[in-house]
Each structure stands twice: as structure tokens, then as C-alpha cells.
Amino acid sequence: MQTKNKKTKFRYVWNFPGFGGWTAIFFGFLYIPIFILVCYSFNSSKFAMIWTGFSFRWYAKLFSNDDIQTATINSFIVAFAAAPLATIIATFSALALVRGGEFRFREFSSGLITLPLMVPEIVTAVATLIFFASLGINLGLINVIIAHTVFCIPFAFMPIKAALEAMDPNLELAARDLYSDKTSTFKTITLPLLTPGILSGFMLAFVISIDDFIITLMVAGGGATTLPVYIYSMVKMGVSPEVNAVSSLMLAFSIFIVTLYWFFNRKINN
């Protein structure tokens, strides 16, 4: 037996065998479906699921599809209206909740912010539908914008709150100590230091609004179709390769914004 030179590989006690491989499978599970979808968007076949060859034809086709273009424009209108609104409301709320000390409506107000996250999305969706329908409010895209604003508030709130909490409250006191009044302290200290957090909040709200489907499906009337709702109707009618192309573009767009957000946040933290 030549056990003399054989040394078992050293392993830290906190290092479990097999967990690395399991994690690889985990990431595979998360990303392989997305990868397959993107691959199939370059499929030249007329049938969505049968691979015949590489082609850009479905991307080219998107640009001649008026419905997709209208839906895309609608999506951007809604996101560019709802995300800033949600960000402004979230900013003011964060200022009051983080810097306002203890007060009577504190718990209540933070509860209000998280409410849209707690209530199942389908419930929010049908409740908003009933609400607008029974009040007879039918303003097309504006209905969608209102619903998105509500839903985006908690997402915009999280990074802004985190940025405020990470900020040394003594900085504002130091400014006050150095003869700066309330307004100029806000302008010269609080706002510049909070800007990265506010931008992060805006980006998250924007992504959430662009991606939202269930609420939009229920709330949007005719003519207010956004891109995800349009994709849904395409899927429901039968999967066409065009769906793969437009879906891949949407995925790329969301991933781009979130990656931007990530680099941005990393810069703040350093």
C-alpha cells in the first residue's frame, strides 16, 4: 500500500462538496431558458419551435409591424410618466420616514408603501379594474399610468431609503452648524448626496413599469395596449417567431437597465 505519499485534499470545514456543482445547475436553470429563447429568435424557420437556420428576418419584421411599434411607444409613455411620479413620491416619503424621527403615522406610512408588494398582483389588478370601471374613469393610458405609479412606489422607495440611511445624519447638522439654513442645507448637502439613490430608484421603477403585465392587462382598455400585453396576445394566438424576437429585445432592454443600475450602485458604495 502506498498510502505514505497520498494526502487527502485539504478542505475548509465551511466548504461543502457538491455545492459548487449544484450552484452551477441552479444558474443553468435560471439562464438556459432565456438563452434558448434568444437563440430561437434568430431561427429562420416560420415555425417558432423548429430550428432551420440563422436569420435576422424576425427582427426585420418587427420594424414593419405597426402594432408592435404602437405598443412599444405606449410602454415608454407609461414608464416615462409613472416612474418619475413614483420616484418623486418615494423620495419625499423616504425623507419623512428616515429623517423625520418618530411620529404617529410612521408605521402606517411605511405600511402604505409596502402595501402594493403585499397584495397579490392579480388582486391589485382586478381591484383597480373594478375601481376605474365603477367610477366610469376611462382615460386610456392615464388609467395605466395611475396603476403603474402605485405599483412602482415601493420599488423606487427601496434604494432611496437605503441611500438616506447610509448617509451620515451629522452631515446635515454640520451644514446647519456652518450657518446654512434648512433650504440651502437640502440643496447643497442632502440632494447632491441623495441623487444616486434617487436615480437608482427611478431605474428600478422604470424597469418594473416597462415589464408589468398583469395590472396592465386588466386595466388597459382598447388602444392602451403596452408591449407585454401585446406579446401576451401574440402568444395566446399561437407562438410565432416574431414573439421570440420582440421578447429577446425586451429582455435585453431590462437587463441593460438593471446592469446600469448595478454599476451605478457599486460606484456609490465605493
Partner: peptide, 17 residues
């Protein structure tokens, strides 16, 4: 990342699979 991407599209990918 998947959390921030469209759930509809991610589910739709499974139809292809």
C-alpha cells in the same frame, strides 16, 4: 437579474422548451 426581467417572457420561454 431574472427578477427584473419580464415574467411573461421568461415563462413563455418554457413553452419553447
Amino acid at each position: 437579474i431574472p427578477f427584473w426581467t419580464n415574467l411573461l417572457i421568461r415563462t413563455f420561454a418554457w413553452i419553447i422548451i
